[in-house]
Nucleic acid binder design. Structure first.
Lengths: 146, 146
DNA sequence: AAAGATTGAACTATCAATCTTT
DNA sequence: AAAGATTGATAGTTCAATCTTT
């Protein structure tokens, strides 16, 4: 059942490899808008929230560590896409607020992402999309017990 | 056709998320052997080659940039798992050579990886494994036209 | 000039430690 | 003490620039 002497790439490496390729593709598309996947994630979260948000809440939404958000917001602030404002309700807290420029760049980024999305997954059959979605969810959930 | 007000996570984000989870799981398992996925990749490449290899060739095998290999080998050398040796045939070239300790650690790492592999994908039906493999290969190949 | 390797800068991410405010 | 945020260290990665050897 294994005639060819071809080395079977382990499934987990195939997954990591595919993700790396996809990531690179999206990063390249976003670079034209001066964004990155991480930065777009911050902007999306803030735009969808519709109001300034404490950095720690941002970290929760992005499923990452707080110190990561600190640096991300540093760079976004340097780009002029976000500003830090004091939280009137809690002086420990600092809110991240999207600027008008940030909103504009988010829209540009969203468009770019949409194109790549279409390019990479547009030709997939609906069944395949659903299968892939289900399998990935299963893997992400921790493996075995579905 | 979309009764629930549930926000559908885009497929590419699901892919990146799943990969991130899997990566974290393997990194955690390898950390017990003092390794990482990247370090294991270098060791595997060298062990499988059976002989010392120029850093640039290593970069080719690992599909990464040369400067990355330089730093990776720096750390592996500091760990005592790899040594740099001069290439007798070409004085520009520097060969990476696995040490005995490096071989031992590679075996430990491989065992650890096998366990996690079983844990994460062991319960998958053969069909599912094949489907996932096929879909990931298709995505990695650049998307649409399979 | 071209190839092999290194260095320095930047981005993303984590962890541990710290500082301020509650 | 606990919560919010920052800083400093480390890992991994890329890119651009540099140095040596061919």
């Amino acid at each position: 059942v294994n005639d060819r002497a071809q080395i079977e790439t382990p499934l987990w490496l195939a997954l990591l490899h595919a993700a790396s390729r996809v990531e690179t593709r999206f990063e390249a598309a976003l670079a034209e808008s001066g964004l990155s996947i991480s930065k777009l994630g911050v902007l999306r979260t803030l735009v969808e929230a519709g109001e300034p948000m404490p950095l720690s809440r941002l970290a929760g939404k992005l499923s990452c560590v707080k110190s990561n958000v600190t640096q991300l917001v540093d760079r976004l602030e340097a780009d002029g896409l976000v500003v830090r404002v004091n939280d009137p309700a809690d002086r420990r807290s600092i809110l991240a607020s999207v600027t008008a420029e940030g909103r504009a760049r988010f829209e540009a980024g969203r468009t770019a992402v949409g194109s790549v999305e279409q390019e990479l997954f547009g030709a997939f059959e609906t069944v395949d999309r659903e299968r892939l979605s289900r399998l990935l969810a299963s893997v992400a959930k921790g493996g075995c017990g579905s």
